[in-house]
């Protein structure tokens, strides 16, 4: 079996995903080659062929061109699978490549099992085992599902890749960096986060009270920020801040993968949720099965008695 692993770069720098792609190839027992639109200054460490397209020429978000470049690499390499991360780069590009290759795509793979791919569904509550029926497949990998601490070193053998540059219709204007964080949750020892389960904006101050009672900072999940209940500077998750406090309390947070990726390195996790099956229960050290709005006042009162 042979894979074409698609590495990513942003602002000229290689994104830190190569070890996950490599770990997946190792677990599948596959040979591999790399593909990257980037530059020679920032290359993945590996002893493999690297199809390298010039970032200056082909841009970082120019999906029509990147698709054609990948198809050119596939033509050379004839891989059984083209493997992306399930990232803003990967989920955008993978379906374009899959359609062109008439290949099945399996998204957000978390495990590989006997030629079938396991993926999460129903907000992480269930899993599916998926069997492609096409000879070639396109895969995207869930971030964090495949890991390998030791990345074997080495220098890739570069194969420069060029295509006739047909004018893509998508015009990349530039990046907007994340706003400066007025709240730095990454240094906090205790983070208490509000999720959709708090019910409404008026209830968020209660979670802030709990954070204060514990001497911690207030965080929040994405839906709470999207709804305007809390400023983005408090958001925990892949598109917010990645935290690793000594204590993390998730109040009414179901535990979507994007949130979990932002707090799973916390030392001790307490989740308060009325849904016993909520995926947050998977990583919580303690799951309190209760309505947040009933439990939190009781907890604040109990903490008050400790002084």
């Amino acid at each position: 079996m042979k894979f074409l692993l698609v590495a990513e770069s942003r602002d000229g720098k290689l994104c830190d995903v190569s070890h996950e792609l490599l770990a997946f190839a190792a677990e599948a027992g596959a040979e591999y080659a790399y593909f990257q639109v980037g530059s020679e200054e920032s290359l993945p460490c590996c002893d493999a062929t690297l199809y390298l397209a010039d970032r200056e020429r082909y841009g970082e978000y120019s999906p029509d061109l990147h698709k054609e470049l990948i198809l050119a690499a596939v033509e050379w390499e004839q891989p059984d699978a083209v493997v992306f991360m399930h990232s803003s780069y990967g989920w955008d590009l993978a379906p374009r490549v899959a359609v062109a290759l008439q290949a099945a795509q399996v998204s957000e793979v978390v495990a590989i099992n006997d030629g079938e791919y396991e993926v999460g569904c129903c907000n992480g509550k269930m899993r599916r085992s998926v069997k492609p029926t096409t000879p070639r497949v396109v895969l995207t990998l869930q971030s964090g599902a495949f890991n390998q601490k030791e990345v074997s070193g080495g220098t890739p053998q570069i194969v420069p890749l060029e295509i006739e540059k047909a004018g893509g219709q998508i015009d990349f204007i530039g990046y907007e960096e994340a706003e400066k964080k007025s709240v730095d949750l990454t240094r906090a020892d205790i983070v208490v986060s509000a999720g959709r389960g708090v019910g409404k904006k008026e209830n968020v101050p209660l979670i802030a009270d709990l954070a204060r009672a514990l001497g911690g900072e207030l965080g929040g999940s994405r839906p709470v920020v999207d709804a305007g209940w809390l400023d983005h500077s408090h958001q925990v998750g892949t598109t917010g801040q990645v935290v690793s406090p000594k204590l993390y309390m998730a109040c009414g947070i179901s535990g979507a993968i994007q949130h979990v990726a932002g707090m799973k390195r916390s030392e001790f996790v307490v989740a308060i949720n009325k849904d016993r099956d909520a995926p947050i229960g998977e990583i919580a050290d303690v799951l309190v099965v209760a309505d947040v709005m009933q439990f939190v006042p009781a907890l604040i009162a109990r903490i008050g008695q400790q002084a």
């Binding site: 795509q105 992480g124 509550k125 599916r128 069997k131 016993r276 099965v289």
Partner: peptide
């Protein structure tokens, strides 16, 4: 192009305490 052969509940790692 891709069949779901099986749907199942992920195994609980069961390390957490449920109150």
């Amino acid at each position: 192009r891709a069949l779901t052969s099986r749907l199942f509940r992920p195994e609980k790692k069961g390390r957490g305490l449920v109150l």
